[in-house]
Write a protein that binds this DNA or RNA. Structure first.
Length: 415
DNA sequence: TCTGGGGTCCTAGGACCC
DNA sequence: TCTGGGGTCCTAGGACCC
């Protein structure tokens, strides 16, 4: 059976840090971290010292006294990430963007135009370097999972072609944590029974793996370990939820804290939804306590909503219920809202529902649609004069902005 | 002393329906 | 008194990824 490897996984190396080093040549070759209080990203020079993303700035400095902290150029990240991914588009329409700095591409259908996958990958790497100025690593394999592993092996600034004829040999020599879905917990469980490589996982009897990880996870890992990943390139993945969260430090769970925070979170989420004529019918809140343990509460509605006020009130009720269930917890450290079960809801449909039974958004509430219209008016003002021009008075919160807004926006998935 | 933000997917039990 | 099975949705929690 003749098979070829035509799935590419392209991944910009230490993306944010590489951009900073490109913009400021004095930073090249130096250990740098984007961010201050929290390390949002760091350069390879910093990684050598053990610096990692999500680490506190202080911890990072302790590991690497030479570390240079820089502010992020978030607009540039978006522009350059887009430019790099666009180069992939020149070689195939089958491109699946995973995040700002990463994408899959299937070049099987375009070999007659551009040559074999390795040649295409070499060209892409050269062009990204020349036209965008950044290093990008590419893995090439028969499946998405293996291509992704390939790009990790290729880093930094490399290319890794995995020949289908010897792919299992390649795969089985690698550590389990390179597999998709194996994080710290699963890695530790596997290590507990002496499994540290993908080959050892492949050789583990199904029954004992089932006992260790449950039948579903076990089956999934087995299929990945034998490179039987069925996933295909998906060109237009739709977001399934939209959420927002805010770390609070350590706060007493009073209405004074909770209400304005939830309103701000709902405002962020709902304006994003309305901008895309979307609404969701499931609202989930998360409350995290001082010991970092978090709980969730959710409510599914009869009809989708996107009005800030309605989402805020539902979130307040859910948080109140969550707190009632945990009376011993003295402090909260984070609040989050997520809206899911998203549905396209153009204004026409909303007006129709007004004529019928209001919008049943919430038991006992018929104000949802008029609120939605008021929100749309506000969105319009913001569109012309900026986000800060208008808003809910009570959302103005004191300082404590641990992460820049620019970073937050980059993390938002297109709805 | 402190520990970000935005997501996806899976599991398991219970309710409910046919 | 004893007695079904399958499917779907909801909720809560957990693991993981970028």
């Amino acid at each position: 059976m003749e098979t070829t490897a035509t799935i590419l996984h392209a991944d910009l190396d230490a993306f944010y840090a590489s951009v900073e080093q490109m913009l400021n040549p004095a930073l090249q070759g130096r250990p740098i971290a984007v961010g201050g209080g929290v390390v949002l990203a760091c350069s390879y020079e910093a990684k050598k010292f053990g610096v990692r993303g999500a680490m506190s700035g202080r911890e990072a400095k302790k590991l690497c006294p030479e570390l240079i902290f820089v502010d992020g150029h978030f607009k540039e990240y978006q522009r350059l990430g887009d430019a790099a991914i666009r180069i992939l588009d020149d070689y195939t329409p089958l491109v699946e963007r995973i995040s700002i700095d990463e994408a899959f591409a299937d070049v099987s259908g375009t070999a007659h135009l551009f040559g074999p996958s390795v040649a295409v990958a070499q060209t892409i790497r050269r062009r990204v370097r020349e036209e965008v100025g950044l290093p990008i690593s590419i893995g090439i394999a028969r499946t998405k999972h293996l291509a992704k592993i390939g790009s990790q092996v290729a880093k930094p600034d490399g290319l890794c072609f995995i020949d289908p004829a010897t792919e299992l040999e390649f795969l089985h020599n690698l550590p389990v944590e390179l597999m998709w879905g194996v994080g710290p917990k699963t890695k530790a469980r596997l290590a507990g029974v002496g499994v540290t490589t993908i080959g050892q996982l492949a050789a583990t009897p199904g029954q004992s793996l089932d006992r260790l990880l449950g039948p579903a996870a076990s089956e999934k890992l087995k299929s990945l370990a034998f490179n039987r990943d069925p996933r295909e390139i998906d060109m237009d993945r739709r977001a399934r939820s939209a959420g927002a969260q805010s770390a609070l430090g350590r706060k007493l769970p009073t209405a004074k804290i909770i209400r304005p925070t939830l309103r701000m979170l709902a405002d962020r989420i709902c304006s994003r939804l309305r901008a895309k004529s979307l609404a969701g019918s499931c609202v989930t809140v998360r409350v995290r306590f001082a010991d970092m343990h978090a709980i969730t509460r959710s409510l599914t509605l009869d009809a989708p909503i996107a009005a800030t006020g309605t989402v805020t009130e539902i979130a307040e009720d859910l948080v109140a219920g969550a707190l009632r269930d945990h009376p011993a917890e003295r402090y909260i450290t984070l609040l989050a809202i997520s809206v899911s079960h998203l549905a396209y809801q153009p204004i026409l449909q909303l007006e129709l529902s007004l004529g019928l039974e209001g919008e049943a958004m919430r038991p006992g509430t018929r104000r949802g649609a008029s609120r939605w219209l008021a929100d749309k008016a506000m969105d319009k003002v913001r569109g012309r004069f900026g986000w800060e021009a208008i808003g809910y008075g009570s959302v103005i919160l004191e300082g404590h902005r641990s992460v820049p807004d620019g970073f937050r926006e980059l993390a938002e998935k297109d709805l």
